[in-house]
């Protein structure tokens, strides 16, 4: 088998007495869509935050393209080509859509205005933001200068997804990206994920929506009590089996379709 693009072994993260990760393992292979599922509080968000540089694990190792890495900030992970849609969306409510799209990686004007006056290139940033929202069919939003807080929850989620898709070059992590979306918009996001995969990116999708997971995932990582319980292929097992594993009704050994690694 090929080498995982993003891999973790034995991640531990404690918050006081709460153990958010308890020796969590993780493997993401190039060009695949990996769904991560688990009960509320299982530690899924904690896991992907460790992978994206948002949280520094207390113990464990992360490898990116085979090399051990330590991301001290999300910026470092972004530089490596890893983009993340956080469950909280990570948007500045008072700032505009364009501001939020480019926060932390603003485009400067060419020439003197950009290099000496450090002036931002609002024209280019607005055009880019508009184009990306168009691609996602978010054109119910007409004004790219609108503050994010005046948008609906679903529109905000759409913008967060558009931002990650626009800037990710290797890995895109989505933590419940369709939780607030309508049926049509959810389908758009699923289509976008398939498209990103076709472009050769690797995708991590956290979702509680089993039909979505079974529709697009290549493999399903089942997270339970702070660690990976097992990984299965949706082709080889049924939705009730997966839910049974996730909730602890079934033990992992009872699952004949388990995929090792």
């Amino acid at each position: 088998m090929t080498q995982p693009i993003l891999q973790a072994r034995g991640l531990v993260k404690r918050y006081g007495h709460v153990v958010a990760m308890d020796g969590a393992d993780f493997d993401l292979y190039p060009g695949e869509i990996l769904a991560v599922i688990g009960d509320n509080g299982a530690g899924k968000s904690s896991l992907i935050k460790a992978l994206s540089g948002a949280v520094r694990p207390d113990a464990g190792e992360i490898r990116f393209q085979g090399q051990p890495v330590q991301f001290n900030s999300t910026k470092e992970a972004q530089r490596a080509g890893i983009e993340t849609v956080y469950q909280t969306l990570a948007m500045s409510p008072a700032l505009s859509i364009t501001d939020n799209m480019f926060m932390g990686r603003e485009l400067r004007r060419p020439g003197f205005a950009g290099s000496v006056l450090r002036m931002l290139d609002w024209g280019r940033m607005r055009a880019f933001a508009r184009e990306k929202l168009n691609e996602l069919g978010l054109m119910t939003i007409q004004n790219i200068n609108q503050p994010v807080e005046t948008l609906s929850g679903g529109q905000r989620q759409g913008i967060a997804v558009a931002r990650a898709a626009a800037f990710g070059s290797r890995v895109i992590i989505l933590d419940e990206p369709t939780a607030a979306l309508g049926v049509k918009e959810s389908q758009r996001v699923l289509d976008l994920i398939a498209e990103l995969k076709a472009r050769g990116l690797s995708i991590v999708l956290i979702s509680h929506n089993m039909p979505h997971v079974f529709e697009i995932a290549d493999r399903i990582h089942i997270h339970r009590l702070g660690k990976r319980l097992c990984t299965v292929r949706p082709k080889n097992c049924s939705m009730p089996d997966v839910v049974g594993l996730m909730t602890g009704a079934l033990g992992p050994e009872s699952n004949p379709a388990e995929v090792v690694g």
Partner: peptide, 25 residues
């Protein structure tokens, strides 16, 4: 209004957690 630093000043005041996750120092 017109520099990245300026936008970061607003973002940090608005929601520091979100700014951090977006890659702002």
């Amino acid at each position: 209004r017109h520099t990245a630093w300026g936008r970061h000043v607003y973002a940090v005041g608005d929601d520091p957690g979100a700014a951090e996750l977006s890659g702002v120092n």
